[in-house]
Design a protein around this nucleic acid. Sequence first.
DNA 1: AACTTCACG
DNA 2: ACGTACGTGAAGTTT
Length: 617
Amino acid sequence: MLTYEHSIAGDTVRVHVPDSPDELSVFIDWAQETSARGPIALDTETSGLAVFREGYRLRTIQFGDRHDAWVIGWERGGHFRRAALKALSMARQILIHNAAFDWLVLGEHAGTPLEDLAPRTTDTRILASLIDPRQPSEHGIGTGLKSLAAHYIDPAAPDTQNGLTRVFNSLGYTKETGWAGIPLDHPTYLLYAGLDVILTARIEPVLRRELARLGVRNELVTYEHELARICAVMQRAGLLVDQEYTEALAGRLAEESERYADVAARYGVSKIGSPAQVVEALTGMGERLTERTKSGALSTDKTVLLPLADLDRDWQRIGAREPNPLADAVLRAKRAAKWGKTYAEAFLSNLSASGRLHPTIAPLAARTGRMSVTDGLHQLPSSDHVIRRGILADPGHVKISTDFQAIEMRVLAALADVRRMKEGFTEGGDAFDIHMYTARLIKGQAATKRDRKIFKGAGFGKVYGGGVGTISRQTGATETEIAHAVSAYDTAFPEIKRAGKRWQRQAFQNGMVFVSATGRRLPLDRDRTYAVTNYACQSAARDVLGQAMIEMDNAGLLEYMRLPIHDEILASAPREDAADVAREFERCMTMRLYGVPIVAEAEIGGRSWGSLYGADY
DNA sequence: AACTTCACG
DNA sequence: ACGTACGTGAAGTTT
């Protein structure tokens, strides 16, 4: 048996690598004893991150406690696999850092479904997020294993991921190819594989103590583990891609982008993605640019170029000036390139062996607790159906999208106890329009659609913490108009400002951490404490969706769920059951929050996601 | 790695 | 003292 020693927090720890059936039985004895005593930490090493890709390999499974780790070479087959599976079945409590990944790996490549693993799992990443949800870039502790180990266990704990990248490079591999290529007997690979489980085993009790000290309820921890399982099931199901359609679309968009890039080149812009070139060329054409970026350079973003091209926010001709042909070409070339590369081509290059996308669904990604999804699936263009048309319901299924109505405004009314808003939501019925209601409240029954738009802007401005200037830019109304609207808004709903002040005060008394309605810790940045109103609403809205997702699982809807999108659940269900399933989604998303009704509306589409956005398929 | 831009809720 | 649009993921260019 190979054994590697390392020092962590002053203790000598050992990483064992069994090499024979006899040595495997020593491992099994250890696993039996350890699982009788307490939890076992678990980790896997694989050929990469794309678990569902053709040719993906599970390489090792590691087990460990605070002092010992065992690296079991799954790739060596036979006895090794049987020993790993036996240890896995014996473990009563499992500790994993970022469990969804290992659940999916073990489900796909070791025949151990996450339905079996999840009920036994504690995910240390979840615990860490509930203590401090911020990334290191946001001045938080971070939720990566390395950050947590450095903060809670040993500042000198090795950075095993970066350490391995260096090993990969020294062997002629890259960061990407190394995971698949490194020999299974490489000492650093084995040592680091083992250290990760030892660190996980050491981090878990420290995080538990910290959660108790901070008064974070255990119900919140349990709820997050349920959501992690539900999201992992959605990730495993994935979304079917219409490959033929998407290939044709990618081709069309590439051609369109090239055509407009050629036009831009005639005006001296060889790279449409270079703001400096665009500034220089436009200035040379006599355009005067004034908007600045954060670092002080002249800005050439969409909001600057659209007026130069005589286009409004919806790309319709305004008729106010002669369109600048360069601005027009840059806008069109960039949009076609973005849609083609970030969406159409990405769909195709991220496909699994079965022609599906399996985006990583992170249930606790943002500092507000919001979820995030990779592969661009949270950002597909909604102004046009062409991209979403490439995502299909399963064979025989149709797409169903169920979304909350004005969830953040309802949450704001509930949390800040806004009397007149609550009256509106309570008495307004299912089709209630909060923004028109506000406009009428202030302007009387004569309120117009334009008034509605202005008070909608003022409302979002309140939730987001925006000022008159920004709301004016967003809505297109003048600053005086917005200033009046905002002041009328404050008079109609005085509770909002007061709640914001109160929440800032509470956070200040709690070490600059606001505790949300569900007990989530939301650290504030000292120089923008006004963001607390947004954090409180965004975070509570996320938990309303989270609660609804748990209802959906209980109602047997999980098999239809495909993607959470902040205030929406995208589903795929058999055509003949669609009406019933849609009604059930609506039921699961209907509830009350401090007396405010939360309502949802389901839309049943056709075969493609695009059919919910105007495509006829 | 930092910056800019652009797509979403 | 005052006022501040919030949160993401991804791609391309420049440093």
